[in-house]
């Protein structure tokens, strides 16, 4: 369980997060949605321990990410940031192998090689394993970075807008994959999404944010109502039901 208590984050006098408290239960996919500047990415970075909040506390299954040794932190929670830097001459296999760094610190064992293979298979990258990441398409590259985060084999995986710049096919493919991989309950995924329909279609839980606060938090089906969405996004939505799935349309 991730336990966030009274988290505030202030930059140059601007309050990005305002006294945020929440609990994220283990298992499945939790989506963070909200308009631009709602503080979704900042909350994700604070939970990962990479951004220190102005005040408040975070516990990841009891671990304090701000005071824990970096290595323990990196074995409890993995974060994929938006548009990570590219290193030339790095193959997909080598990139994914970096996910094992918190476990072996430079001396990989057979268990690490196995974990890398599993991640490559899980994200359908086996055929691309020897390709340089600089030569991949945007969708493939994003998948490679997510596979690296996956290979970290942390109980919690945080993804900051992984669907950015992906076309519908790759976005759908990625969400379906994450959904399938998170069914066994061993991994919990927290994901920042811009596309409400991606959240409606694939997330188990949704946390809706606005102006640095959490406005609503519930199971997806319960949270997605026209009233809540209008409140969060300040714009009217229509909620349709299509083949048993909720579809959100801006009005």
């Amino acid at each position: 369980m991730i336990d966030v208590q009274n988290l505030s984050y202030v930059v140059d006098g601007t309050e990005i997060l305002h006294d945020v408290s929440t609990r994220l239960e283990r298992g499945g996919i939790t989506a963070l949605i909200g308009p631009n500047g709602a503080g979704k990415s900042t909350l994700l970075h604070c939970i990962s321990g990479l951004e220190s909040p102005s005040c408040g506390s975070v516990r990841i299954d009891g671990l304090d990410p701000f005071t824990a040794p970096p290595r323990s932190r990196a074995r409890a929670v993995a974060l994929l940031q938006q548009s990570p830097a590219l290193v030339s001459r790095l193959t997909v296999h080598e990139l994914v192998s970096f996910g094992r760094w918190p476990h072996h610190q430079g001396r990989p064992t057979q268990a690490d090689h196995d974990a890398v293979e599993r991640a490559l298979v899980a994200f359908a990258l086996s055929d691309l394993a020897d390709r340089s990441i600089a030569t991949l398409s945007g969708g493939q590259r994003q998948r490679a970075f997510i596979a690296m985060t996956w290979a970290q084999e942390t109980p919690w995986m945080l993804l900051d807008e992984p669907l950015n710049a992906l076309d519908p096919r790759h976005a759908r493919d990625l969400m379906a994959r994450l959904h399938a991989l998170s069914r066994d309950g061993a991994r919990s995924i927290v994901i920042v999404l811009h596309d409400i329909n991606a959240a409606a279609g694939w997330a188990d839980h949704i946390v809706a944010m606005k102006d640095g606060r959490i406005v609503a938090q519930d199971a997806s089906a319960a949270l997605l109502t026209e009233d809540t969405l209008r409140e969060v996004f300040d714009t009217p939505f229509e909620l349709l039901e299509h083949r048993g799935r909720k579809v959100v349309v801006a009005r």
Binding site: L50, P70, S72, A74, L79, L80, Q81, A85, W101, T149
Partner: peptide, 13 residues
């Protein structure tokens, strides 16, 4: 060399 953000995420100081 992966960059500060990714390196820190992987537990490198």
């Amino acid at each position: 060399a992966l960059g500060r953000g990714t390196a820190r995420g992987l537990g490198l100081d």
